[in-house]
């Protein structure tokens, strides 16, 4: 993974603005002015205080919300709605409970009329990758939260999107499951070479996962800082503890903490 400026961006976000209920007496400005670009294979983290509008930015990239002004260009096309090239994983569990694990993973490919033999192959491949091979015939009701999120990730990746969008995907999981899932995501990013944009408000998660962190202000969102996680020296860490011993990790965390505090709406003391 190298971050060079030579590579053409896969996604260009240009002067994005979003106002909810623009015609009401109390319009809500969620996103003020956001521009950035994403290069292929990059793992970009959108970080910021709760309710800052970063999820809205992600939803606009998915095509689930349309911008009030500005535009998002993905592979030379302006986004005007959801598409299979931009798969989304949500914080809440979205497994289809009437389908088995294997059928869930197959679901997107079936929608897009992928040939049955290829579907079978990819289902097996992704069952292995996310460690759910023994649960192929289980129904979501029988799975833990972490397993449900693995189903969701496998289902999205099996559909081979150009962009994997993740909206606080591990937010509902317990701490142990969460770092397990983070390490799984790193290995998936490496093995599938998928471009990933992930929204979180967890500093540790951002530093562990991100090749690059874009920090948003409190609502209405603007970009306060956009930089590669330099101390990683463009490589990713498979295990979280290896990251913690890096010389500049603490400084980076402090810097993010300072940014977070400056944008926080909560002040108790």
């Amino acid at each position: 993974m190298t971050v060079t400026t030579k590579v053409e961006p896969i996604l260009r976000v240009e002067r994005l603005k979003k106002v909810f209920n623009p015609l009401s007496t109390e319009p809500v400005e969620a996103v003020k002015d956001v521009s950035f670009q994403v290069r292929p294979n990059e793992l970009t983290v959108l970080l910021g205080p709760s309710g800052c509008g970063k999820s809205t930015v992600l939803r606009m990239i998915a095509g689930l919300e349309l911008p009030s002004s500005g535009k998002i260009i993905h592979s030379d096309q302006t986004i005007d709605g959801p598409a299979r090239t931009r798969g989304m994983v949500f914080q809440s569990y979205t497994s289809f409970e009437w389908l088995t694990v294997a059928k869930n993973i197959e679901y997107g490919m079936k929608l897009n009329a992928v040939a049955p033999t290829i579907r079978k192959e990819r289902v097996e491949h992704y069952l292995e990758l996310v460690g759910l091979a023994d649960f192929r015939n289980a129904y979501p009701k029988q799975l833990s939260g972490g397993m449900k999120q693995r189903v969701a990730i496998a289902r999205t990746l099996a559909n081979e999107p150009e962009l994997l969008l993740m909206d606080e995907p591990f937010g509902a999981l317990d701490a142990e499951t969460r770092w397990n899932m983070q390490e799984l995501l790193i290995s998936l990013a490496e093995s599938t070479q998928t471009t990933i944009i992930l929204v979180t408000h967890d500093l540790g998660e951002a530093l562990f996962l991100g090749d690059r962190i874009i920090f948003f202000s409190k609502r209405p969102a603007t970009i306060i800082s956009d930089m590669p996680v330099v101390f990683k020296k463009t490589k990713r860490f498979a295990r979280k503890e290896d990251l913690l011993v890096e010389a500049d990790y603490k400084a980076a965390e402090q810097e993010l903490m300072r940014l977070m505090r400056s944008q926080s709406n909560i002040s108790i003391v």
Binding site: M88, F90, T156
Partner: peptide, 8 residues
């Protein structure tokens, strides 16, 4: 929305 982003 999940189904939509999978191409439904």
């Amino acid at each position: 929305e999940t189904a939509e982003t999978l191409g439904a």
